[in-house]
Design a protein around this nucleic acid. Structure first.
Lengths: 205, 205
DNA sequence: GTCTATATGATGATAGAC
DNA sequence: GTCTATCATCATATAGAC
C-alpha cells in the first residue's frame, strides 16, 4: 500500500519481501524468537538469499530499523516543506505544532505494525546503539530546534531542554499507543484535539 | 540492597538467584537471547534446578514480571497509607499528585534495571497478555480513580479518561527514562520539579 | 541473485540419582 | 531441592551449483 518512490537501494523484490516479513515476525515473535529460516520461508525465498542480502541477522534488524525511521521522518517532515526554520520562524507556533502532531499521529495509525516495531526495538538491546542514536538524532534535532525557537519567542515554557524533549517524545508515544489500541477514536475530533491539547498545555508558556 | 521483608513465596536462595540473574540477562540480552543454560550457570545452579522452580522459560519471565510490578506497586502506594480515597478526597490534589510522582521517580532511579526491564517487556510479545493486563490494572486503576475525582472537583481538565491515563503513563515513562539516562539530574530540584510541572500543567483544569 | 544441502554448535526440557 | 547427563530439535551461517 505504501508508495515507494525514490528507492535509492537496488532493492529487488526478494530483498523487500525479506524486510517486510522480518518486520512482521520481529513484532509478533521477537528478534531471537524469529529464526532466519522462518523469515526466509515465509518471505518465499531461500535462507541463502537472505544471507546474500544481509550479512547477518543483526544487520537485517539494523537495516530494517533505519529504513522505517527514515520512512517516518520523510513523511512527517513534509509538513514543513519549503519552509526554512532558521530564517523564517513561525508566526503561529501552536498551529505548526498541531500540524506536525497530527501528521505524526496519522502516520502511526496508518502504519501500526511499523509503529509497534519502533516502540519495541527503540530500547531493545538487540539493536546496535549507534543505529538507535543515528535514527533518534535525525528527528529529535528538528524538534529541538522548534522548542528552542519557541522559548526565545516566549511561547514555550523554559524548562530544561533535554527533559522537555523526552517529555514530548513520551507524550507522542502515549498518544499513538492509545490510537493504535482504539483506531476508531483516531478519527474522532474530540480525542484527536484532546491528545494535542494535553501535549500543548504542558509545554506552552 | 533491596530489603525483602514479607516474602510470601517459599523462595529459597536458589530460586531468588535465578530470578535476579534472569532479570539482568533479559535486560541486557533479551529473552530469547538468554539461554536457560546461561541463566542457570550465572546464577550458580544447575539447569534442572531452574526447571524445578519454573515450569518453563516463559513462566520464568511471567513470574519475574509480576514480582517486579508488585514490588513497584507496594512501594509507591505507601504514599497513601491509611488514606481512603473513596471517603476522604484530597484537599490538595496537586500536592498528593506530586508526592506520588516523586515517589515513582525515586523508585525508578533506585531500581534502574527493574525499570528498564519493565520498559522493555511491558509491550513485548514474549510476555503473556493476561500477565501484562493484570499488572497494569493494579496500578492504573488507582490513578484512574484519582483523575476522576479531580475532574469531579474541577481541578483536573475533562478530556477522555483513557487518553489521559495513557498520557500520564507516557509522561512518567519519559521522565524516568530521562532520569535513568542522567541519574545526577535526578537529585537536581530544578529538573525534578520541572518534570512534575510538565505533567501537572497538562492535566490541571 | 537465487537456490539446495549441510556444517556446527546451542537450545529448551527431561530422567533419574542423591 | 539439587544435581549430572543427555535427548531431540533448532539455530545461524556457509558452500557451491545454476
Amino acid at each position: 500500500m505504501t508508495s515507494r518512490a525514490l528507492e535509492n537501494k537496488p532493492a529487488t523484490n526478494k530483498r523487500q519481501a525479506i524486510l517486510d516479513t522480518a518486520l512482521n515476525l520481529f513484532v509478533t515473535q521477537g528478534f531471537h524468537g524469529s529464526s532466519t529460516a522462518q523469515i526466509a520461508r515465509q518471505a518465499g525465498v531461500a535462507t541463502g538469499t537472505l544471507f546474500h542480502h544481509f550479512s547477518s541477522k543483526e544487520m537485517l534488524l539494523n537495516e530494517l530499523f533505519l529504513s522505517i525511521k527514515q520512512e517516518f521522518a520523510e513523511d512527517i517532515l513534509q509538513v514543513f516543506q519549503g519552509l526554512d526554520l532558521d530564517t523564517h520562524p513561525q508566526r503561529s507556533l501552536k498551529a505548526s505544532a498541531q500540524k506536525l502532531w497530527n501528521r505524526a499521529i496519522d502516520w502511526a495509525i496508518a502504519n501500526p505494525i511499523k509503529q509497534r516495531f519502533f516502540l519495541l526495538y527503540a530500547l531493545s538491546p538487540e539493536l546496535a546503539v549507534d543505529v538507535r542514536e543515528q535514527a533518534m538524532n535525525s528527528i529529535l534535532g528538528f524538534i529541538s530546534k522548534l522548542l528552542t525557537q519557541g522559548q526565545a519567542m516566549g511561547e514555550i515554557v523554559t524548562f530544561p531542554l533535554g527533559l522537555m524533549l523526552d517529555n514530548c517524545h513520551g507524550q507522542y508515544l502515549a498518544s499513538i499507543r492509545f490510537f493504535t489500541d482504539y483506531p476508531a477514536l483516531g478519527q474522532d475530533p474530540l480525542h484527536r484535539e484532546a491528545s494535542f491539547e494535553l501535549f500543548w498545555r504542558s509545554i506552552k508558556a
